[in-house]
Write a protein that binds this DNA or RNA. Structure first.
Lengths: 138, 138
DNA sequence: TCCTATATTGGACTTAGTCCAAGTCAAGCA
DNA sequence: TGCTTGACTTGGACTAAGTCCAATATAGGA
């Protein structure tokens, strides 16, 4: 994730301890934390960081395109650092576990003109649902 | 939607003025109201109906499978009465307009085993995004 | 008509997130 | 290195969406 920090610095981001910590927390594959979870982990590294700063920083990362907002359950938004590799999500209906997945094919092409209602369609977001191995065997 | 009321009565639902009004409000194609919108329209027909009852009734309709919960924007949940005709959604990124759409193909089959992480996948939910004709021309 | 399990009500509460004025500090410049 | 300043952070108040609950009302069967 240090390349992320480099990219951000290059874009004129002022580098602060708080931003560094948020970026560190949001590292890895299959990471989908809520803002509160990010805050909790950030506090462990930098006790005085505030909720407002976590929200601000997440919002900035999202609008810079470095982090994706996903809302797979209907509760809090989750933040996905895997923004540079397009993907969809597979969610366990029981425990909420989330994996990043890459289906084959091009779902955009599967929407016929007759189903576009004159819209200019530019993007599609897919959420697969099912049971994870643990919940399926329980 | 009177067939809905019949079905519900058949399932042992006690029929009240409030439930009838909520069911009436949720009638039609391409209807995707928030709970508050449902409440506002219900109040127009039955001034003393409470927010709690609207939430209760919507929740029951969802768990009976008569109404779908969709969260296309990241704000309030929306309720979609078009539950018996499987479909996905096309959302205007600017104004939030929503249409029901039916893509061709079977997206479930497009998730290879190697991308299933041992999950039992049973369902997929797709949200197309773009600009509606009005917003595209503005 | 009466009875009672079921439904409704309104208000308090919770959760997720936003906003803001005041204080702090990173980083460019001398 | 030590200023300066505008960008960043803070905490607390605020909002929106939704849940919960104890008290009250009522649908529908006997």
């Amino acid at each position: 994730m240090s390349d992320l920090l480099e990219r951000l610095r290059g874009r004129g981001w002022r580098m602060t301890a708080q931003r560094r910590v948020v970026a560190e927390v949001l590292d890895g594959e299959h990471v989908h934390l809520t803002a509160d979870e990010v805050h909790a982990r950030a506090v462990a590294k930098l006790p005085e960081i505030s909720r407002a700063t976590v929200y601000n920083t997440l919002g900035e990362l999202v609008s810079l395109g470095e982090v994706l907002e996903v809302s797979t359950d209907k509760r809090a938004k989750r933040y996905d650092p895997n923004a540079h590799r397009p993907h969809h999500h597979l969610v366990c209906a029981r425990c909420g576990a989330i994996r990043d997945v890459r289906p084959i094919g091009n779902p955009l092409a599967d929407l016929p003109d007759s189903e576009r209602f004159g819209f200019t369609v530019s993007d599609v977001e897919m959420t697969y649902r099912g049971l994870c191995p643990d919940c399926a065997s329980a």
